[in-house]
Computed example of a mutant assay.
Amino acid sequence: MAEQQPTHNPPPAGPWYARLATSAGRPAVLAATLIMSMPGEYHVARFAGWSDPWAYGMPFSLSSYAGIAAVVAATRPKGARGRVSATLGAALAIVLALAAQVVAHLVATGHMDHNQAWLIAVTSMVPPAVLAHLLHLAATPVPKPEPAPAAVTVERAEQPPVPPKPEQAPQLPPPPPNEEQQDPEPERPAIVYRDPRCVAVRPLYDNGTRPGTAAMRQALLDAGHGRVGDSTIRGVIRAEIEEHEPHLAQLPPAIGRTA
Rank of each mutant, 00 (worst) to 15 (best):
A73D: 09
M1S: 11
T123L: 07
A190C: 08
E146H: 13
A104L: 03
P149F: 07
S124G: 14
A28T: 14
S51G: 11
Y17A: 12
H43C: 01
E242I: 04
A74M: 04
H133K: 01
K165E: 08
L20H: 07
V201E: 09
H8E: 12
V154T: 11
L20K: 12
R217P: 00
L248Q: 09
N9E: 11
P11A: 05
A21L: 02
P186C: 04
A73M: 03
G226A: 06
Q101D: 04
G212A: 00
T258C: 11
V126P: 08
A69K: 02
P77S: 14
E240Y: 01
V192G: 07
H136F: 15
W16P: 02
S124L: 12
H133G: 06
H136Q: 15
G79Y: 11
L134K: 10
R197F: 01
I237E: 06
G224A: 03
A121K: 10
R257C: 13
S124E: 05
V122F: 05
M216C: 08
A100T: 00
A169Q: 15
H244W: 05
A239N: 11
P184F: 10
G49N: 12
G224K: 03
V199D: 11
L30N: 05
E240T: 10
G229R: 06
A55S: 10
A74V: 03
A157Q: 15
G67L: 07
P10I: 04
E3H: 05
Y193S: 02
L204S: 07
A223P: 04
H105F: 15
V126E: 04
P166H: 08
I241H: 02
E155S: 15
A2N: 09
R227V: 12
A73Y: 10
Y65C: 01
R46P: 04
E187H: 12
N178P: 03
E245K: 07
L30C: 07
Q182V: 00
H43N: 13
H111D: 12
N9F: 15
P149Q: 14
T213M: 09
P11D: 03
R202T: 12
Q4E: 12
R76S: 07
S64D: 01
L119K: 04
P177M: 06
L137P: 02
E179T: 11
Q168I: 01
A80K: 02
Q168T: 06
T213A: 00
S63W: 13
H105E: 14
P196A: 09
P166V: 02
V29H: 10
Q101F: 07
T140M: 10
Y65T: 03
T109V: 13
Q116R: 15
V162H: 06
T232G: 07
D222Y: 04
P173L: 08
S51K: 13
V71F: 13
H114E: 06
N115F: 00
E245F: 03
V152K: 11
Q4S: 01
I94L: 08
F47P: 05
V72R: 02
V84C: 01
L92G: 07
T232F: 08
D52T: 11
L98G: 10
A148C: 03
V228Q: 09
S37L: 05
V122A: 15
E242S: 04
E185Y: 09
S23V: 13
L88A: 07
D52N: 15
T232I: 01
E3F: 11
N115C: 14
P27K: 08
H225Q: 06
R194K: 11
A66T: 04
P177L: 01
L96I: 08
A215C: 04
